[in-house]
Write a protein that binds this DNA or RNA. Structure first.
Length: 278
DNA sequence: CGTAGACCCTGCGCGC
DNA sequence: TGCGCGCAGGGTCTAC
């Protein structure tokens, strides 16, 4: 569910309420995530103050004053929600944090909720979270200058894999997932099956621009709300990104009118327009 | 090395 | 109304 725009939306909405807040206590109700939660290590962060909230690809980084912090990945079904303390627990609220502080802060609770448990909650007591080994192999951020046409050409050189698979590879570019890759390739007018190594520089330029535009547009709108994605304040249906290709099988292409086609690539659905994506 | 496929887990919508 | 099936936006590991 959550790709870069959703994680960025969460980051922005956590920043104001949590920046400067001090962790008070934590409860782990189910430690069985992608990696088992290290409960004692999480508890050891009690009393520490949140410096700011960052993001790298689809990872949320809660940096603590003096180093260390929380690294959260939402997997397919994960969410981070802020609720009033003692709000009735959801069945899949796996971790709950309470905060010290004045006024509203001490009455708020942050929860990690994840039905499918593909998500991740890791903690570090010291050091720069950005140096975490899990982040080491991530490619550049799409909005970073390093995500350039030359870079894309270099990574694609001699590669026979479909451009869609290349863009889904987090070591090529961080934060893109299945939905937004489909949207990017539709916007760029590039066929997802095209071998990466056969794409011209001019078309890479279009892919790069489309990536930035599509993601920026989605962040503006606050991320998709397919299914029941909520932002941390609990609002629902507030954000709704208009998808041009993803999920529109058999519907007319919004650019050329051809029927949107759905195929499977590496086990994941791809939606594209056979009429105008070449 | 690069690539494709299986796998992890629960929930939902659909057709019967 | 109930049930079984296929599918779901994540990453990681293995085998070729």
């Amino acid at each position: 569910m959550p790709e870069l725009p959703e994680v960025e939306t969460i980051r922005r909405s956590l920043q104001e309420p949590l920046e400067g807040a001090r962790l008070l206590s934590v409860q782990v109700r189910d430690r069985r995530l992608r990696r088992p939660i290290a409960v004692a290590a999480l508890e050891r962060l009690n009393g520490r103050q949140i410096a700011d909230i960052g993001r790298r690809g689809k990872y949320l980084l809660l940096h603590l004053v003096g180093g260390g912090g929380l690294l959260i990945h939402l997997g397919m079904s994960g969410r981070v929600v802020l609720v009033p303390r003692d709000t009735v627990l959801d069945l899949h609220d796996h971790v709950c944090w309470q905060f010290e502080g004045d006024g509203a802060r001490c009455g708020v609770e942050m929860r990690f909720r994840d039905p499918r448990r593909f998500g991740l909650v890791l903690s570090r007591a010291t050091g720069d979270l950005g140096e975490h080994p899990l982040l080491a192999s991530l490619g550049p951020e799409p909005f970073d200058a390093a995500f350039s046409v030359d870079y894309l050409r270099e990574r694609a050189a001699r590669s026979r894999r479909p451009v869609k698979n290349m863009l889904m590879d987090a070591s090529v570019v961080a934060g893109l997932g299945n939905i937004y890759v489909c949207e990017v390739l539709w916007a760029a007018g590039v066929n997802p099956k095209t071998q990466a190594g056969r794409i011209s520089p001019a078309r890479w330029a279009r892919v790069r621009e489309a990536t930035i535009e599509v993601l920026a547009g989605a962040i503006d709108q606050g991320g998709t709300t397919l299914n029941d994605f909520r932002d941390p304040s609990g609002e629902m249906g507030y954000f709704q990104v208009r998808l041009q290709a993803y999920g529109r099988e058999a519907q007319p292409c919004l650019r050329c009118g051809s029927s949107i086609r759905r195929i499977s690539q590496s086990g994941r659905s791809t939606f594209y327009c056979p009429g105008c994506q070449h």
